[in-house]
Design a protein around this nucleic acid. Structure first.
Lengths: 130, 130
DNA sequence: CTTTTATATGTCTTGACAGGTATATGCTCA
DNA sequence: TGAGCATATACCTGTCAAGACATATAAAAG
């Protein structure tokens, strides 16, 4: 439609700690502005403003319930972030495998939990971050 | 110096588009500063600064190779983001299922591609974002 | 209709941060 | 040793966004 909003990345929206708190709260169930306000101990105008940002970025949608507005999550931006993170998953899952092997060496290698698949991955560690 | 860096969230780091570009590039393989500079067409000081931020946030580590520094990814911050996103995954994967069912109704329900698992999930849709 | 409750918006200030440019550091090779 | 390349850092500036506070809108209750 008409509003070609400056289309900032989902990550930019989620960078704000209070917004992350709001999203986490809404992940449990939908909530009204006042409920969010009290649960998170933040001033009401702040809540409304963050909700506006979240709404315009597609993270939440609102339902009118008398004088209140009930907010709940929308999936798209999360999928977008997941999609971006996907390009790194192969990379860091290899590291998880390495960690698992390491832990297995310390702890008894219990019969596979069926969770993470274990792959034959050797070498490559050690790095100086300085 | 000696400032206890304010330990910003990984999302804050990744909010910057150029940094995301750098990370995507490093997801392919390790690179030197100069390579990043040329690949992404950005001034060298900018690259160095972003790399510094990324390094201090644990996204990358550097190896000294003569006069160059080779940068490569570290897994932890990505895992951290994944962990945060996990609380929403159940939520939006339900929406994906709903979308799939919808598409199946329009398009022939082809024999499962083996990608997304389809779960028996009913109800809850419809919302006015306004 | 007035008051109260719930939420949104406007204004102002302040701080953080990215971009640009100049310069410092450090390694290599002649 | 000095020249040249690769990278890091310092400084300045503009922008943008979040916090605080006041106020507007709108529905409900009395």
């Amino acid at each position: 439609m008409a509003y070609i909003k400056s289309m900032e990345s989902a990550f930019q929206i989620v960078a704000e700690p209070n917004r992350r708190a709001i999203l986490s709260l809404l992940a449990l169930s939908q909530h009204s502005v006042g409920e969010i306000e009290r649960q998170l101990h933040m001033p009401q105008p702040a809540v409304s403003k963050h909700l506006r940002v979240l709404r315009e970025a597609g993270f939440v949608e609102s339902m009118v319930d008398a004088q209140r507005r009930l907010y709940r999550l929308r999936p798209e931006p999360f999928q977008e972030m997941e999609a971006w993170l996907a390009q790194f998953r192969r990379f860091w899952s290899a590291h998880i495998d390495a960690l698992e092997r390491h832990l297995d060496r310390i702890d008894p290698p219990k019969p596979n939990h069926g969770k993470t698949r274990r792959r034959p991955n050797r070498g490559r560690d050690k790095g100086e971050t300085k």
